[in-house]
Amino acid sequence: MKGLLLVALCWVVTWPLSAAEGVIDVKSAFGVEETADRLQTVLKQKGMKLFARINHAQGAASVGLSLRDTELLLFGNPKVGSPLMRCEQSVALDLPQKALIWQDENAQVWISYNDPGYLQSRHAISGCDEVLAKVEKALAAFVQAAAGEDM
């Protein structure tokens, strides 16, 4: 019985950590809408295609539920995504790229996105280290520009 309690306690203590495995969170100096607008501008400037911008809070409100401000941007570039899919086609499950802009319970706004290293591990991508490094650098730059004071 003690062993079972120990296993249960370990699971409870580590569960929140595993829920965000492979997710990079970056604080934003702006509100959700402004952060999403800034990210959309950066993406356009860098030649990325914006496939969708989804306002989850509006969706929740449309069915009578409340949700803190939450927006999702789906974006990408076939010049980058296609080579990744050639290395391992299952990565298409996580493409196009996504950025979640959300407000936490303390009114702090965050931009969250998938860590390319996690996607490499998740999909057992091999032979694409150069492309993954490029993606990692680009995502970090896009997010920092949108979240920070300078643009």
Rank of each mutant, 00 (worst) to 15 (best):
L17Y: 08
M85I: 04
Q103E: 15
L5S: 06
C128S: 01
L6F: 13
L6P: 09
L73P: 02
L73T: 04
V80N: 02
F30L: 07
E136R: 15
R38K: 08
A61L: 10
K79L: 14
L6D: 12
W15K: 09
P78E: 03
R86D: 07
L6S: 11
Q120P: 00
L65G: 03
K134H: 06
L93H: 03
A20S: 10
E149N: 04
A107G: 07
K27L: 10
T14W: 09
K134L: 06
T41Q: 15
S62E: 11
V12S: 09
R53K: 14
V63W: 07
K44P: 02
M1F: 10
E34V: 03
D25Q: 13
E130K: 14
L17Q: 09
L4H: 07
L9R: 00
Q45V: 01
Q108I: 06
D115Y: 13
L139M: 14
A107M: 13
L9V: 01
L84H: 04
K49C: 00
L95S: 12
E105K: 07
F142Q: 10
R68L: 15
A146N: 04
M48R: 14
T41A: 13
E149D: 14
G148H: 02
D94Q: 02
R38Q: 03
S18C: 09
K44E: 14
Y118H: 15
S18G: 13
A57Y: 00
A20G: 08
V23F: 07
G127H: 12
L67S: 03
G148T: 01
E88T: 01
F75A: 09
A20E: 10
S82G: 06
P78I: 04
A140Q: 11
E34K: 07
I24T: 07
V143C: 08
